[in-house]
Simulated assay, not measured.
Amino acid sequence: MTTAPLISVEGLHITFPGRHGAPPARAVDGVDLDIRPGEIVALVGESGCGKTTLARALLGLVPPTAGHVTFDGAPLDYSSRALKAYRKRVQLVLQDPSGSLNPRHTVYDAVAEGLRIHGHGGDERAAVTEALNRAGLRPPERFFLRYPHELSGGQRQRVVIAGAMVLEPELLVADEPVASLDASVRGEILALLLRLRAELGLSALVVTHDLGLAWNIADRVAVMYLGRIVETGDVEQVLTAPRHPYTQALLSVLPEAPGTPVVLTGEPPDPARIPTGCRFHARCQVLTSGEADTAGVADACRTRDLEVLDGGAQAQVACHWARASVAT
C-alpha cells in the first residue's frame, strides 16, 4: 500500500505513575503503527500487554507521555473542542454492549445520542433509521422504542455499532467487539464490520486476544507483548508463518493448529520492571530449548534490546533468533 496513513502513531510511550513509591508502569513502551484508509488492523496480545491503552491513545482518551498521534496528516490536538470534533471522525465500539448502553434509553435515543452531542443539523430520524439499517436491525422502526434488556446480545452490539456509525466516522476502534457474544453471533458481527468497510471505506483497529478473529477480519496484524509490537505484517503471512516465538506460542493453542501446543511458563513481566534484552526472553521457548544458543544469539536475547518496529505494512519481527534464522 502506498496510500498515506489515515492515522499514525510514532514513538508512542504511555507511562502511569507507580503506587507507594513503585517505579512507573510503562504500559506502552515505544510503538509505531499506521492504519490506512479502508484498512482493518488487528492488534493482538494477551491481557495486560498494553493493547487497550494503545487503542485509548488513538481515541485521544490517554495523552502520550512521549511520541505523538497523527490523524489525516495533522497531529492530534488534545483541547476539548478539538477532541470533540475528532471523536466525530473516530468512534469506539466496546466489548460489552450491555455496559455501553444506558438501560433507561430506548434504542432510538441510544443511536441518536451522538448526533445530539455533536449538534447534528439534519434529519435526526432519517439518520437513526439509516444507521440501524446499516447495522442490520431491520425494519429499523421496529427497534426504536425497545430497551436494551429487550434485545439479544447480538442485537445490542448492533445498536452500539449503529450508534458509532450514525456519525459517519472514518475510523472505528473496536475493543474485543465479539468477546462477550455467543459463537453463533460472532460471525454475524464480523461480517457486519467487513460490510461496513466495503460500503463506506471504513478503517478499523480491532483489539483482540483471539487470533482466529484476526484471521477472519483483518488485512494486517500487529502482535503486542509487554508494551511493544513484536511482530507485524499481512495477516495471512504472520498467521501461517509466524516468526516470533510469542506469535508461534499464541497460534499453537488454536484448536486447528498442527503440532503440540506451546505452554508458556510464568506470567508476563511487570510493566514497571521490563527486563533487559528481549522483553520476551524470560518465557521464550526458543531460548529454553537451546535453539537460541545454537543460533548464537542467546546472550543477545538476554541483554540486547530490540528497536521499535516501523509502523508500515511490511512484515517485521523484533526477535534476535528470527533474524539470525533468516540470515543463515
Rank of each mutant, 00 (worst) to 15 (best):
T52C: 12
R158L: 11
P37K: 09
T65K: 03
G187A: 05
D310K: 01
A74I: 05
E291F: 05
P37R: 11
G212S: 13
R283T: 00
A74V: 02
V297S: 07
P17V: 11
V69A: 07
D305P: 15
G122T: 02
V221R: 07
L196K: 01
T106E: 15
G212N: 09
R323S: 06
P242G: 04
P242S: 07
V9K: 13
A318S: 15
G122A: 05
A191S: 14
G121I: 00
R142Q: 02
S252P: 00
T328H: 15
Q314F: 15
S79D: 00
G73Q: 09
R87Q: 01
A191M: 14
Q91L: 11
C284L: 09
M165I: 13
S79G: 05
G48A: 04
P63L: 03
P269Q: 00
A162Q: 07
Y246M: 09
L205K: 12
L196R: 01
L306I: 08
E267K: 09
S100L: 15
G266D: 01
A300Q: 10
D270V: 05
L181R: 02
A327I: 03
V263R: 08
V263P: 12
Q95H: 11
V107F: 09
D305Y: 13
T260W: 11
L205D: 11
P75M: 01
G277M: 14
Y86V: 00
E46W: 12
V160T: 08
R186L: 03
I217E: 08
L250R: 06
P64H: 02
T247W: 11
G48K: 01
G201K: 03
Q157M: 12
Y225Q: 08
L94T: 05
A22Q: 14
V286Q: 05
G67T: 00
T15H: 13
P258M: 14
D34A: 13
G122Q: 03
H20D: 02
R273I: 10
